[in-house]
Simulated assay, not measured.
Amino acid sequence: MDAQRRGLLAAFGASALLTLFPGATRAATGHDTRFLLVLLRGGLDGLHLLPPYADPAYARLRGEGAVDDPIRIDPSFGLHPALQQAATMYRARELLPIVAIAPPYRERSHFDAQDCLENGTASPTGARDGWLGRCVQAMPGGAGFAVAAVMPLALRGSDRASNWWPPLPKDVDPQLLQRLQPLYAADPRLSETFERSTHAATMARDGKGAFALPEAMRIAAQRMSAVDGPRIGFVEDSGWDTHRNQAQVLQRKLAELDQGLAAARAGFGAAWPRTVIAVVTEFGRTAAINGTGGTDHGTGGMALLCGGAVRGGRIGGDWPGLAPAQLNQGRDLRATSDLRGLFKSVLTEHIGLAESAVESRVFPASRAVEPMAGWRAA
């Protein structure tokens, strides 16, 4: 058979497949995959979510603040007991915790760290738009969608991105709430009160209670699971700045995250095998517990990858240890991976963006950051 006839038959086969099974064709070519970014604002304590129970320095640093009886998923690490659904996903090889990972920012300001994470550069002022927005613009089709009161920095920069939030009472301005949140977050006594008040002001229309993280993740997943739904999604949640009473606060917050992961899995439905969710935060916490039963701003954090397209059931990343000489500045878990490396790999291997577009447009001036390998299911 000559080359011309082989080419005609190949074209006919592709055309027939597109006609008979359009969804299958999009999935096979990488154009039907989904990526949801969940940003936990405030600096989640990764050592509390994924306690390194086998490291003797952990109990010494945390004392009574150490997590009791974690769900042991690995000879060295366990999940917090509130993360029952996450543990089930881990055992199903759909959850991959990644240790000691953070944006390139290495200081301790919430605002600068979040800006750096969202703009996708090495500087809080490195870009006025976001890496997810630039990703949407670089895609040949598809859209971005945020469950947020105002368009987050991460998705700015694309005319194919939109945001949604439950209607607020007429006398509450969502932009004002967003501007006030960092101010209240800086005060450990007022942050939780502000969060509860904000949730009370954003009651869902069905009257079932506050519009919290599980509902936001469910709605994002349902919107994104539609045949022509947005391929890129964003959800944010506040209240992770645990300067005091960390055990009590994170018991509640981690339970909400756990419910959110389960809600997203159900919401994605048939799209779950083609889905990746990344749960990230702007930085970690101090390795030692402070005098008020909490932790302070740190550097090295953690991330969770989950979804049917994730090769989970193991621990990812490079663990630096918690011995005094291994800590950053003698106080924090040291970051050994750049979040941009994880994001780069997701965009090229899962979303299907060309490496050239990722390096030049989505994450400019980042060629020294290698894409993270080995996270994707075969």
Results as ranks from 00 to 15, higher is better:
199 H>T: 13
306 C>L: 15
9 L>N: 13
375 W>G: 00
339 L>E: 11
29 T>K: 15
146 A>I: 05
33 T>D: 09
115 D>I: 04
41 R>E: 07
300 G>P: 02
36 L>T: 06
237 D>R: 13
177 L>D: 02
11 A>H: 11
21 F>I: 04
329 Q>L: 12
89 M>H: 12
175 Q>R: 13
59 A>I: 14
18 L>A: 15
38 V>R: 02
114 Q>L: 12
228 D>A: 15
158 S>V: 01
282 E>V: 01
267 G>L: 00
116 C>F: 08
294 G>F: 15
374 G>P: 05
57 A>I: 00
329 Q>F: 10
273 P>H: 04
44 L>K: 08
66 A>I: 01
219 I>D: 14
183 L>P: 01
129 D>F: 03
91 R>V: 12
85 Q>L: 13
249 V>G: 06
233 G>Q: 11
111 F>R: 09
51 P>I: 05
162 S>H: 08
278 A>V: 10
220 A>V: 10
247 A>K: 13
307 G>W: 11
226 A>L: 13
106 R>N: 07
258 D>A: 07
43 G>E: 02
168 L>M: 09
52 P>M: 01
243 H>C: 06
117 L>G: 03
15 S>R: 14
302 M>C: 15
264 A>F: 08
265 R>D: 03
66 A>R: 08
213 L>S: 05
248 Q>A: 13
188 P>S: 07
139 M>D: 04
303 A>G: 05
341 G>M: 11
182 P>Y: 13
313 G>D: 05
357 A>S: 15
237 D>V: 06
154 A>S: 05
